[in-house]
Amino acid sequence: MSGRTHVRACPERTCVGCRKRAAKHELLRVVAVEGACVPDHRGALPGRGAHLHPDLACLDLAVRRRAFPRAFRLQGSLDTDALRAYVGQRAGVTPAS
Score class of each variant (00 low, 15 high):
V16E: 04
A32I: 05
A62R: 04
L27T: 02
H41R: 15
T14Q: 08
G88E: 07
F72P: 01
P69V: 09
L78S: 01
R29C: 06
R13T: 05
V7L: 08
R65K: 15
A85Q: 11
R19L: 11
G47V: 11
A67L: 08
R21T: 13
R29G: 06
L27Q: 02
T5Q: 13
V30D: 03
L56G: 05
A67K: 03
H53A: 12
R65D: 14
R73L: 10
G3K: 09
S77I: 05
C58D: 02
S97R: 13
C15Q: 05
E34W: 00
Q89Y: 00
P95R: 04
P69R: 12
A22G: 09
F68L: 08
C18Y: 05
V7H: 09
V16W: 02
A82I: 03
A96E: 10
H25C: 00
L74R: 13
R70I: 01
R4S: 15
Q75E: 14
V30E: 00
R48Y: 12
A36R: 15
C58G: 02
A96V: 09
A71S: 13
G47P: 11
L74A: 10
P11I: 06
G76F: 11
A23F: 00
D79M: 01
R21Q: 14
E12N: 10
F72E: 05
A62I: 03
Y86W: 15
G35W: 08
E34N: 15
E34T: 12
R8C: 00
V33T: 10
A62L: 11
P69H: 08
G43V: 09
S2Q: 08
H41E: 15
R42T: 14
L52C: 11
T5H: 12
L45F: 03
G47D: 12
D40K: 12
A57D: 14
S77H: 09
G76D: 10
A82C: 06
H25Y: 04
P95L: 09
F68V: 08
A62Y: 02
F72S: 04
F68I: 07
G88Q: 04
V31K: 02
V87D: 03
R73Q: 11
H41N: 10
G17R: 07
L61T: 14
V87Y: 02
P95Y: 01
Q89A: 15
R19G: 06
L45P: 00
G92D: 08
A71V: 06
C37M: 13
